[in-house]
Simulated scan of single mutants.
Amino acid sequence: MDQQRNIGFIIVFLLFISCTANTRFPVSATVPAAEITAVRKKDKNQNYVVEIKAKYLAEASRLQPPKNNYCVWIVTTDGITKNIGQLSVSNIKKTELKAVTPFEFNEVFITAEDRGDVTYPSGVEISRTRFKK
Rank of each mutant, 00 (worst) to 15 (best):
D2W: 10
Q3L: 15
R5P: 00
I7L: 15
F9C: 06
F13A: 15
L14D: 07
L15R: 14
F16A: 14
F16W: 14
I17R: 10
T20M: 15
N22W: 15
R24E: 11
F25G: 01
S28H: 08
S28G: 10
A33M: 12
A33G: 00
A34T: 03
E35P: 00
E35Q: 13
I36L: 10
V39A: 09
K41A: 09
K41S: 11
D43L: 14
V50A: 01
V50S: 03
K53F: 08
K55L: 09
K55N: 10
Y56I: 01
L57P: 00
A58E: 13
A60C: 08
L63V: 03
L63A: 05
Q64E: 13
Q64W: 13
N68W: 05
N68Q: 13
N69W: 01
N69L: 11
V72T: 04
V75G: 00
T76A: 04
T76G: 03
T77N: 15
T77Q: 13
D78P: 00
D78R: 04
G79S: 06
G79D: 03
G79Y: 03
I80L: 08
K82M: 11
G85S: 04
G85I: 05
V89M: 11
V89F: 07
I92N: 05
T95S: 12
K98V: 14
A99Q: 07
V100A: 07
T101N: 04
T101H: 07
P102E: 12
E104P: 01
E104M: 09
E104H: 04
N106F: 10
N106Y: 11
N106M: 12
N106R: 10
V108H: 02
V108Q: 03
F109E: 02
I110K: 02
E113D: 03
E113Y: 02
D117A: 08
D117I: 03
V118S: 03
V118W: 01
V118Y: 01
P121I: 05
V124P: 00
V124I: 15
V124C: 10
E125R: 12
I126E: 01
S127C: 08
R128A: 04
T129D: 11
